[in-house]
Design a protein around this nucleic acid. Sequence first.
DNA 1: CAGCTTTCGCTACGAGACGTAGCGTAATAC
DNA 2: GTATTACGCTACGTCTCGTAGCGAAAGCTG
Lengths: 213, 213
Amino acid sequence: MQSRSPTGRAGRAGRPRSAAADTAILAATRAALVELGWSKLTLGDVAARAGVAKTTLYRRWPGKNELVVDAVAELFDELELPDRGSLAADIEGVVRQFAAILERPEARSGLMAVVAEATRDDALRARIRALIVDRQKRLVREGRARAQRRGELPAERDARQAARVVDLIFDMVAGAVVHRTLVSAEAADEDWARGFTRVLLCGLFDTGAPGDR
Amino acid sequence: MQSRSPTGRAGRAGRPRSAAADTAILAATRAALVELGWSKLTLGDVAARAGVAKTTLYRRWPGKNELVVDAVAELFDELELPDRGSLAADIEGVVRQFAAILERPEARSGLMAVVAEATRDDALRARIRALIVDRQKRLVREGRARAQRRGELPAERDARQAARVVDLIFDMVAGAVVHRTLVSAEAADEDWARGFTRVLLCGLFDTGAPGDR
DNA sequence: CAGCTTTCGCTACGAGACGTAGCGTAATAC
DNA sequence: GTATTACGCTACGTCTCGTAGCGAAAGCTG
């Protein structure tokens, strides 16, 4: 887990960058996202909230996009995958955690906005992948390995196939929760998580009654 | 299918609004999205491209958000659901169509941006639901009815349960394709659509060989 | 046809955010 | 102690925003 803040290069001569300023700026960014949202958030305002000069902010981040990515990425690091005994329970748990993060206004407006910007900015897209997407894929990999240990899921043929499946599951889980929460704009509550998990594990063809409802 | 353009109120006295200006403005908006993307798109630029005055544009749309929603919504009306004989084939087909639209830059940057803005703007969220989400849910409903006619899927108990399932499927399909295309930033090609459809229909527990890769 | 109503294009404007430059000062490494 | 870098502050030109005001154009209405 390397530091991803702009204050990374040590060993140089001269006055080192204030690490406290980093955390203050990122916290101020999240606070501004809550109060103002993405479009009305200005770097001058963030600097004022953080108690630093605007120029200091520009020395560390190229612009608004990168700053918000860093600020939002920290939110998703809270995700965990406690062992609940079954694959279904594990999935429901992580879905609920993910949904809880997306309830927070600083995540809602920030995440979608930077993804939108990333459609025209390769460097920004790489930053999102590195700090958010790839970091959280660990959850899928761990849950899958756990299920295979339990005998719930078969092992893959080869590593490439395994990576493909992990990517697919990640897109399905994250995509569905994000779409439900932000586009359909309805809560991904326990009922929804249960229905989603059922379809993900058993498929639409499954007409079973157990755990029905 | 009612007109959703700002030029809707007929029967009034005085000079009617130019319908040609509406289409010119929406086309200019999409063109500007392609060249500039969301963040650098300005209403002055759109007005110039469309050959209308900036004030005319402001008389018809409240702002950038609403304009882009209307411009992007027209893209998704192209979606169709030709009968391919089986539920799996139908899903793969609509996934590929949806992915094809999301390949276009005017859809990529525009869609995510307005969704981001909608997280803090109830009216905008309602506009997106009316013009994009609810309009395209017809695809899920039709595909589901078709599959039930074929005997591939059982009928629901009641209407409320049916609506819930439609919502869930819509979030899963649209969410997964959007996430794959815009967040993971990889193509939702035929291979991916096949794997996705298989999981959606049969679930992760299914270890079957038939049609395997 | 005359008259009324509404839209249109144009110009201009104050407000606000952007991103940068320059300066003197503060804090650390060597 | 000295070199080096970060910091806070101020100021600036540039751009976009959204609105106001005007005269002219284009239809409905009787």
